[in-house]
Structure formats: structure tokens, C-alpha cells
């Protein structure tokens, strides 16, 4: 699994952090997405896919 995030598209809804806090974080100054790891362990796959599905800006791409 590999994750790519697009900080320009991100609207800081924070839903990725709620879905997978071990993988996604937010920049202190404006809440924009920060990737903690781009290759998380497989047991987080469901949470990561949930994060991508609820991102309103379609800013998270997951390659399996």
C-alpha cells in the first residue's frame, strides 16, 4: 500500500485524521494534511481506505 496526498487540494476537514490518526496528521498553522507514513502497515488498510473515501477534496490517493 502506498499513499499520496495533495496538500494543494486539501481543505483541512480533518476527516483523514479521525479515520486513521497513525497515518495522517494536520499542519499546525492551517490544518492541511501531513502524511506520517506513506507506506503504512497492512492492518491499517481499512482505515486508510476510509480516510480516502471521506476526504471531501479527493486529496488522498491510495495505491494497493
Amino acid at each position: 500500500m502506498k499513499i499520496i496526498v495533495d496538500q494543494d487540494r486539501c481543505v483541512a476537514s480533518g476527516q483523514c485524521v479521525t479515520a486513521a490518526a497513525d497515518v495522517f496528521d494536520q499542519r499546525d498553522e492551517d490544518g492541511i494534511v501531513v502524511l506520517l507514513t506513506d507506506t503504512p502497515p497492512e492492518d491499517l488498510a481499512a482505515d486508510v481506505h476510509q480516510a480516502a473515501a471521506v476526504c471531501p477534496a479527493l486529496a488522498i490517493l491510495v495505491e494497493d
Binding site: 481543505v11 483541512a12 499546525d28
Partner: peptide
């Protein structure tokens, strides 16, 4: 829209909330 919105996103981020 994005320029103005980003000026007020920080207080609504998950850890601040």
C-alpha cells in the same frame, strides 16, 4: 475561497478541537 478559508482552518483542526 481557498485563500480565505485557510486563514481560519487552524482552530478547527482535530487536535485543537
Amino acid at each position: 475561497h481557498a485563500r480565505l478559508r485557510r486563514m481560519v482552518t487552524a482552530p478547527f483542526m482535530i487536535k485543537r478541537v
